[in-house]
Nucleic acid binder design. Structure first.
Length: 644
RNA sequence: GCCGGCAUAGCUCAGUGGUAGAGCAACUGAUUCGUAAUCAGUAGGUCCGCGGUUCAAAUCCGCGUGCCGGCACCA
């Protein structure tokens, strides 16, 4: 006699076990039509499942947030059926719903190409039109394995083998097609609707392991209706317009070329942007008690052996040798990190506890041999400059230093236009240096520091640095990809390996703890994200060109020169546009170049000693005396830390 | 690194076996114009590289390089 409690608090009793379909029908025909699935005591299930006992029940309709997940998961099944109908012999593996869509991994000798999409999509629409019911079948491990073995579905057999003992094994059948699946699903393939689109093909390793076979993955997107799909596609186009590689080219900020793969050629405007950010960072670090240093690019192998890099990091290091006979025995490495060098500075002289925490900062140029497939614009490169620093401190100072660091980072991110960021906590990786005790201590210390600093994080197991656990501060680019920028790492290993010590209050020699930390991460990556975040329309203080002064007639050229000179004298990055073009054209060009402010002068302004300011890409104009305009533009071009 | 795609003028792109094209940019000239592209002319190419097939290759095939999308990697 189940009594079913609905979200409005009302209770409905039934004489015996009922299915969700029956409950929905009992409530009303509208709901019966709209319900796609149900949530029973917090667990999403198929509507056709039977409710035996008292329960809280809620129906999922197309309007509910869960509907998207259902639609996408069902779409993955429809895709798999379509593919197997069109390409016999293709094996199915897994096909989950993901952010904005779904994918399915297939095993097939011949990989799919985008040309196959039209045919597959047509077949999918056919399957949706058939509206075959999703039928849930509970089976035994033995039967399930026999079924898929007979079909030649080796990957499914492997999946079943690896399911934990005691796990209920369920199959879902839609028409004649059957798949191993945990569910839940909607009523039938018709519920998927037609607002889906196949997006891309990609290789993907079976079970995400590069030692396994490469499968052929098809990505798709799916939505409630056409309008949502169109909106999503439109958003993707918008994101493409923000791509830092595209904007970098349009604004002439930088380029990359074959002879220096993974290294950025910064052009004058890009470098100006870089320097604006660098100068800002330098001021913030100075104010936060850091001391800036500079350390060598090429360092003897001996130091890397001592630090553990030679053992743990060698494949990623560029090695340098020289022709000179006398130098033959000497092997140098271009530094992939700055930490060992900073320890050398710490070690140079006897340190006292009174000097701690000692914060050594460096805009350190590093080189790492990244796998070719990992390179991405200026966000993943082989040569980059970190805003690196190492804080040498006593153990009891970790918490406070963490709190100070997080506060500094959050303030800087806010100034640079990032109000939101995520924090991940990465603990000990498989390949690591140091003892279990030191890892225990480092992980505990960092967690405790997070508690005290009020930092909330997601766990990221096994992803720490080889010398210590880390916090990762993650920002998202225009295309929705996440990038680690800031980081904070607790390290007991390097001070030990490189023999760092200080004299404690009681006169004994002790090992400092080392905190590795970066806020931007690397300038290259961060500037890439910054470009996308602002779509190239930087706040004036960052912009490489803050104001363009231009003319309507050449009679105003002299006055334009004077105005530009005044602005320059005030420290505003100004450029002059005296081209023999119509003003309309100049406006378009400078909008395209994403100049924040256009100052226009004609005969009238020259006579009256004024400037007409137009904030691009806006249309409004504002006329004011030259001196006022200079003062205003100067104020607007002042970096936020100097304006406070 | 792996799977797939792509590579033509400075940029964006057309050109599927028969004498390399367009728009924009550049350069020259005209035009002096009041806020989203003034007009005309000129010049510009190892069609990514190497090899092969063919009477003939930007085009077909192989190898290499780079880029793009994923996967793996990301101290």
């Amino acid at each position: 006699m189940p009594a079913i409690t609905l979200p409005d608090g009302s209770v409905r009793s039934f004489d015996g076990p009922v299915t969700g379909t029956q409950v929905a029908a009992a409530i009303g025909p509208g709901l019966a039509k709209a319900a796609l699935a149900m949530v029973v005591d917090g667990q999403m299930q198929d509507l056709a499942r039977t409710i035996e006992a008292d329960a809280a029940l809620r129906f999922v309709t197309r309007k509910d947030p869960e509907a998207l997940e259902l639609i996408r998961h069902d779409a993955a099944h429809v895709l798999a059926e379509a593919v197997q109908e069109l390409f016999p012999g293709t094996q199915v593996t897994i096909g989950p719903s993901i952010e904005n869509g779904f994918y399915y991994d297939f095993a097939r000798n011949e990989p799919f190409t985008p040309e196959d999409f039209a045919g597959i999509e047509a077949k999918m629409r056919e399957i949706v039109a058939r509206n075959a019911a999703f039928e849930r079948i509970v089976t035994s491990r033995h039967e399930a394995m026999a079924l898929f073995a007979e079909k030649g579905e080796k990957y499914k057999v492997e999946l079943i083998q690896d399911l934990p003992q005691g796990e209920t094994i369920t199959l879902y059948k839609q028409g004649d097609w059957i798949d191993l699946c945990r569910g839940p699903h909607m009523r039938g393939t018709g519920d998927v609707g037609t607002a889906f689109k196949l997006m891309k093909v990609a290789g993907a390793y079976w079970r995400g392991d590069h030692r396994n076979a490469m499968l052929s993955r098809i990505y798709g997107t799916a939505w409630r209706d056409q309008k949502e799909l169109d909106a999503h596609l439109h958003q993707l186009e918008e994101a493409e317009r923000r791509d830092h590689r595209k904007i970098g080219k349009e604004m002439d900020l930088f380029h990359l070329q074959e002879e220096a793969v993974g290294s950025v050629f910064w052009h004058p405007k890009g470098w100006k942007l870089y320097r604006n950010i660098e100068a800002y960072m330098r001021r913030r670090l100075d104010a936060a008690g850091y001391q800036e240093v500079k350390t060598p690019q090429l360092v003897d192998r001996k130091l890397w052996e001592a630090s553990g890099h030679w053992e743990n990091y060698r494949p990623h290091m560029f090695i340098a040798t020289v022709e000179d006979e006398t130098e033959r025995e000497r092997v140098l490495a271009i530094k992939p990190m700055n930490c060992p060098c900073h320890v050398q500075i710490f070690n140079h002289g006897l340190r006292s506890y009174r000097e701690l925490p000692m914060r050594l900062a460096e805009f350190g140029a590093c080189h790492r041999f990244e796998p070719s497939g990992a390179l991405h614009g200026i966000m993943r490169v082989r040569a980059f400059t970190q805003d690196d620093a190492h804080i040498f401190c006593e153990e009891h100072q970790i918490a406070e230093e963490t709190a100070r660091f997080v506060a500094l980072l959050a303030g800087i991110y806010r100034d640079l236009g990032f109000a939101d960021f995520r924090v991940k906590f990465s603990d000990r990786p498989e390949k690591r240096a140091g003892t279990e005790e030191s890892w225990d201590k480092a992980e505990e210390g960092l967690k405790e520091a997070c508690r005290l600093a009020g930092v909330e994080y997601e766990l990221n197991p096994g992803e720490g640095a080889f010398y210590g656990p880390k916090l990762e501060f993650v920002l998202r680019d225009a295309i929705g990809r996440d990038w680690q920028c800031g980081t904070l790492q607790v390290d007991y290993v390097l001070p030990e390996r490189l023999g760092a010590e200080y004299v404690a209050e009681d006169g004994s020699r002790r090992r400092p703890v080392m905190l590795h930390r970066a806020i931007l991460g690397s300038f290259e990556r961060f500037l890439g994200i910054l470009i996308e975040q602002h779509a190239g329309r930087f706040p004036s203080w960052m912009a490489p060109v803050q104001v363009v002064v231009t003319t309507i007639v050449s009679d105003a050229d002299d006055y334009a020169r004077k105005a530009a000179a005044e602005l320059e004298k005030a420290g505003v990055a100004v450029s002059l546009d005296l081209r023999n073009e119509k003003i309309n054209r100049k406006v378009v060009d400078h909008i395209e170049q994403r100049v924040p402010v256009l100052a226009v002068v004609g005969r009238r302004e020259a006579e009256e000693g004024t400037l007409v300011l137009r904030r691009l890409p806006g249309r409004e104009q504002e006329t004011m005396p030259l001196a006022d305009a200079v003062a205003l533009l100067k104020a607007e071009a002042t970096p936020p830390d100097l304006a406070r």
